[in-house]
Design a protein around this nucleic acid. Structure first.
Length: 215
DNA sequence: ATCCCGAGGG
DNA sequence: CCCTCTGGAT
C-alpha cells in the first residue's frame, strides 16, 4: 500500500465507529492508566462493569494505595486475571505516590517501570494523555496492519513504527482506539466483514479474501 | 476449542 | 523464544 493509500485508508477508518459502547470508562490520567491495566486479556465491557465502583472507592493514587490489593480485589473479582491486577494496581498506585508526586509520569521508562504496565499500556497513556506520537499495537492492529498492507511487520515494533510514520498527526491521537475497534468488529481474525468496512476502496484485502478458496 | 485493547518471567 | 495467569464470549 502506498503512502497516499495509507493516509486515505486511515482517514476513512477515523470516520468509522464500529462499536462506540466499548470505550473504556475513565475520567483522568490515573483512572485511564488503571482502566488500561485492568483490560489486559479481558474485554472492555467486563472492565467497564467494575471500574465505576472501583473509581468511586478510590479515585486517586493515594486512595487506591490505601485501598490496597485486598480492597481492590473486592471490586474487580469479576474480570480475568483479577488477582495479579489487584496486586499490580495497588503497587502501581503506591509507586505513583512515593516516586511521582501522585501524578502519572509522562515518560516511557517511568511508565514501564510501573507494575502491570508494559509497552502497549505505556503507549496508550503517552498517546491519549500526553499527545505523544505513539501507537499501541495489540493483536487486532498487528493483524490488520499486515493483512491490509497498511503497516506490515513481523514484530509489534515494526508495525508500531510503520503506523506512527504513516498516520497523519491530526489522526494520531486515539488512532489506536479506532484501529482496534475496526480490527475487533470488522477486519476480524476470522470472517472479516469487508462489506461494511469504510475503507474497502483503499485496501485490496477484500480481493484476496474473495480469491481465497472458500472465502 | 480459541481468543482477548498484555505483562512478567524463564 | 516459550509459558502462565483469569474469566467470558463465540
Amino acid at each position: 500500500m502506498s503512502r497516499m493509500q495509507a493516509v486515505a485508508f486511515l482517514e476513512a477508518l477515523a470516520q468509522e465507529n464500529p462499536a462506540p459502547e466499548t470505550e473504556l470508562h475513565y475520567t483522568d490520567p490515573f483512572t485511564l492508566l488503571v482502566a488500561v491495566v485492568l483490560s489486559a486479556q479481558t474485554t472492555d465491557a467486563m472492565v467497564n462493569k467494575v471500574t465505576p465502583g472501583l473509581f468511586a472507592a478510590a479515585p486517586t493514587p493515594a486512595a487506591m494505595a490505601a485501598l490496597g490489593a485486598e480492597g481492590i480485589g473486592q471490586h474487580i473479582r469479576r474480570i480475568g486475571l483479577w488477582q495479579a491486577k489487584a496486586r499490580n494496581v495497588a503497587a502501581l498506585a503506591r509507586m505513583l505516590v512515593d516516586q511521582h508526586g501522585g501524578e502519572v509520569p509522562a515518560d516511557r521508562v517511568a511508565l514501564e517501570a510501573l507494575p502491570g504496565v508494559g509497552r502497549k499500556t505505556a503507549n496508550v497513556v503517552l498517546n491519549v494523555v500526553f499527545g505523544q506520537a505513539t501507537m499501541a499495537v495489540d493483536t487486532h492492529i498487528f493483524r490488520l496492519g499486515n493483512r491490509t498492507g497498511l503497516a506490515p511487520g513481523k514484530t509489534v515494533r515494526e508495525v508500531e513504527d510503520a503506523l506512527v510514520k504513516r498516520c497523519p498527526p491530526a489522526l494520531l491521537r486515539d488512532a489506536h482506539h479506532w484501529l482496534i475497534l475496526h480490527g475487533r468488529y470488522i477486519c476480524k481474525a476470522r470472517a472479516p466483514e469487508c462489506w461494511r468496512c469504510g475503507a474497502v476502496a483503499h485496501c485490496n484485502y477484500r480481493d484476496k479474501v474473495l480469491a481465497a478458496p472458500g472465502g
